[in-house]
Design a protein around this nucleic acid. Structure first.
Length: 276
DNA sequence: CACTCTCCCTGAAAGC
DNA sequence: TGCTTTCAGGGAGAGT
């Protein structure tokens, strides 16, 4: 599920927990992608939540006693917030965090997500954070940065957009939508992109992600914000999940790249002319 | 080193 | 209807 717009929408909903004191934490299952640290309860109990933000697709919750709680939602992970009295444990609820007023629940059927905890000042020592490239919405993400990362690469641009070490936050849905918007073929190798095409891609990254955030993200199966509100951007998909349909008179195709579906419109997304 | 592929897991939908 | 197969929004790690 969750790519940058869904994570961003989740983070926005989580702000309700700001300045609340953590009264209790319960772990119902430890076997996510990584084991949930067992000392979470001991360390965070009675500490206040002072900051909640996002790095790429990672959600970071800072506590007043200088710890950072990390959530990664994987494919099926979801955070929801309930009032104390309405909480009922559902299947695949792995973790809950209580404050006086609210309960935060981490639910993940496929368990590709994970939860981690470490000292706040050590956040950039975590391999999965330190390796990340610039965030897709970072103002520093410009054509020069992007070109430097990809000008030698023979990997197709579709796969480059999914590489979190180059740009953090884009997943399979938005990679498809971004390339359609930029009118770039998903097969174009990094080294074959002209500077003008790179400029177009960056413009489309910001544009598509912004619109998706304003729509509350995309809801395909089960994604919803912390209060249960579903997203609407799926209604704006131009190519994703639309193989066999037409757009502006051209067919939309589905192919597989690196084991992931690519949806694109060959009549509109043309191969770069640049030779190398 | 750069690149490609498989695997982790569950559940929904499609196929038979 | 019911059983089997395929596929899914992410990422790590092994293999080439």
């Amino acid at each position: 599920m969750p790519e940058l717009p869904e994570v961003q929408t989740t983070v926005k909903g989580l702000q309700i927990l700001l300045n609340e004191k953590i009264t209790n934490i319960k772990i119902y299952s430890t076997k996510l992608r990584y084991e949930i640290p067992k000392n979470i309860q001991k360390i965070l109990k009675n500490s206040k939540i002072i900051k909640i933000y996002r790095i790429g697709k990672y959600i970071v919750v800072n506590s007043q006693n200088h710890y950072s709680l990390i959530f990664h939602l994987g494919m099926s992970g979801r955070l929801r917030i309930l009032k104390q009295s309405t909480f009922v444990n559902k299947k695949h609820d792995h973790f809950i965090l209580k404050t006086k007023k609210n309960i935060l629940i981490f639910n993940d059927s496929r368990r590709f997500g994970f939860i981690d905890l470490f000292r706040t000042k050590k956040i950039f020592k975590k391999h999965y954070i330190s390796r990340l490239g610039l965030d897709a919405l970072d103002r520093k993400l410009n054509k020069q940065y992007f070109r430097d990362k990809i000008y030698k690469s023979i990997v197709p641009i579709k796969q480059i957009l999914l590489n979190q070490e180059i740009v953090a936050g884009i997943g399979n849905i938005y990679a498809n939508e971004i390339l359609y918007d930029a009118k770039i073929s998903p097969f174009t190798k990094g080294c074959s992109l002209t500077i003008l095409e790179i400029k177009k891609i960056i413009k489309s990254i910001k544009k598509i992600l912004r619109i998706a955030i304003n729509s509350g993200g995309s809801t395909l199966k089960d994604y919803a914000s912390v209060d249960g509100a579903v997203g609407n951007f799926q209604n704006n998909f131009k190519v994703y999940n639309r193989d066999g349909q037409k757009i502006l008179g051209h067919n939309i195709k589905r192919i597989v790249q690196y084991g992931r579906s690519t949806f694109y419109c060959p009549g509109i997304q043309l191969i770069s002319k640049k030779r190398k």
